[in-house]
Nucleic acid binder design. Structure first.
Lengths: 329, 329
DNA sequence: ATGAAAGCGCTAACAT
DNA sequence: ATGTTAGCGCTTTCAT
């Protein structure tokens, strides 16, 4: 592959001029431009990003950290990040941490040693202390899960309000025994959604029953199925459940199917995230929709602004309760 | 962030020696090594990949091309690619082409201008001619969908045999009117699976009915639902269907649910891919499992071997029919 | 065993 | 408007 000097030679100009044509950074005569472009075509020249990046000391690569690829919740956010980044001349590198500190370190190092310019983290399991340390010298944005101390800018939704809204919906349908299938409460969103759950109970004078709260450390289908299995073994079986993710809710629904419990007649169910599957289950799943694509756009926008030295502020976006068959009546 | 010269100065050696310590490429006295490592720690030094990559003219970045993030079929393959690549010192960049030629070109250019070392393409919609052109000078591997002329090494399964196996299973259950919900037959896998479908019909002396073959250009749930809607409008409604992806099958199943058709009693259904959700539907879905993780490993292995100048051969991996509730009896 | 120096491909400051 | 030159951070001959 030809380099910039060969192009310059071929065009009979200096490499600086070729660079000028490439980046149209300062004026070049139409005639020289023609010559250069001609030479570029003839030699089939493609500028080396390696050289350019070294010179500019930037990679135009953004890291997007997610715990694993398997959770469809992330895909739509990623689409937003991707679309926006590409538009502004950045590429994104999707990084699966597997909640593994070694992997995590690999990605942090990529930023430190200039292989990537910044990070959008959607990984709730991330080592927040290390990330904050990194944030002192590099650009970082959080998405979905955020830092309570707010030292790193984030884009998120009001989890407590969303959970409260879900509960209010269930309570209005007449449910009094409502379970919460929550994830590990070491995560901020889990604590926030629990808060909303409890606030609704209190406001409607319903008792808070410890045995109705199930914490799982497995966010996939299996986790939801197992949670429901436990709930159905209780002396007084709840009549509804709010699962903090659609994957959990779908697993729970499967378990209800297996046990022959009719949804929503015998048991009402609500999920969270509005993943595409949630509209394919039987019955379809009531859930909370986050403006995922918008969140992705916002996160990418904030990160790139930050990279370009502009000031950025955290944002809270709106959510929406989507009522479907699993809570009809 | 300190650079290699500052480390050298701090340690009282030359930058060449620091480089030697970093890459333990030639012998260095234990004492000097100590000094250097000390200096590295003190300055919190991280070698710049930008400099290293430019010098070595490699990026240690592999591109993985997929049509879009939303299809869970790819996730497990990606896991395999990722795990293996990281082990061999490469990172992967997940590239969503959206079947958009412009995006595609962006990624091809990344290889041309040294931002990435090679490509694993899982995108059936890719411009094969351009890819072949690129393959003349760069390392490329195909996964799942491949090049009939076999000029680019690939890892795949025997689609025709898999489709035949599915049909044989349905025919043995007594079905004679079996529909095929296929994707666009511009894709090789679609043609191959149709071949298997037809071969089974012929072998069992069943008529090939054109109206039982539905081609969709939309591989998601909606595509499957729409296909089933059409099939259920036929004069002689089929009693079973083979959908060439689980997403299609799940959409079809949803439509059957909506129409109140019992699966498998009134209608048997088979999918393809064994995505995790296929075990969460009601009823659970019979499907063909591909060894996705293994495919990912194999593809990454082939690409890295190729980059290192080793000869590589295409491979065909085994598949397996997973019988679940949607075809029980 | 270690150092000096060249150079990977590019851009930008400075000079003309 | 264009050319000259230095240098981004690293590795690797070639000397010593």
């Amino acid at each position: 592959m030809a380099n910039i000097h060969e192009v310059a030679k071929q065009a009979g100009v200096s490499s600086a001029t070729v660079s000028r044509v490439l980046n149209n950074t300062s004026s070049v005569t139409e005639k020289t431009r023609q010559k250069v472009e001609q030479a570029i075509k003839e030699l089939n020249y493609e500028p080396s990003m390696l050289g350019r990046n070294l010179r500019n000391s930037e990679s135009r690569l953004l890291l997007v950290l997610i715990p694993n690829f398997s959770n469809p919740y992330y895909t739509e956010i990623i689409n937003g990040i991707e679309d926006f980044s590409v538009e502004r001349g950045y590429n994104i590198l999707l990084c699966e941490t597997d909640s593994n500190p070694t992997r995590e370190n690999t990605f942090f190092n990529m930023v430190k040693n200039k292989l990537a310019d910044g990070i959008i983290s959607m990984d709730p399991t991330i080592n927040m202390a290390k990330l904050q340390e990194l944030a002192k010298k590099h650009s970082i944005v959080l998405c979905s899960e955020y830092d309570e101390l707010e030292r790193i800018p984030y884009v998120a939704i009001d989890n407590e309000a969303a959970a409260y809204k879900v509960m209010k919906h269930l309570i209005r349908l007449g449910h009094e025994n409502i379970a919460l299938i929550n994830s590990d409460e070491k995560f901020l969103y889990a604590r926030q959604r629990r808060k909303g759950y409890e606030r609704a109970l209190k406001e409607f004078d319903l008792p808070l029953r410890k045995e109705y709260i199930y914490n799982t450390n497995n966010l996939d289908f299996q986790g939801g199925a197992q949670a429901m299995r436990k709930l159905l073994q209780l002396d007084e079986i709840p009549t509804a459940a709010f699962a903090v993710s659609d994957t959990l809710a779908i697993g729970a629904l499967k378990e209800l199917n297996v046990k022959g419990m009719d949804v929503p007649d015998a048991f009402a169910l609500v999920g969270f995230d509005n993943i595409s599957f949630s509209n394919m289950t039987n019955p379809t799943l009531t859930t909370v929709a986050q403006p995922m694509y918008q969140m992705g756009i916002a996160a990418a926008n904030m990160l790139i602004d930050q990279l370009q030295g502009k000031p950025v502020d955290s944002v809270m976006l709106e959510h929406e309760l989507i009522i479907r068959e699993s809570t009809l009546n």
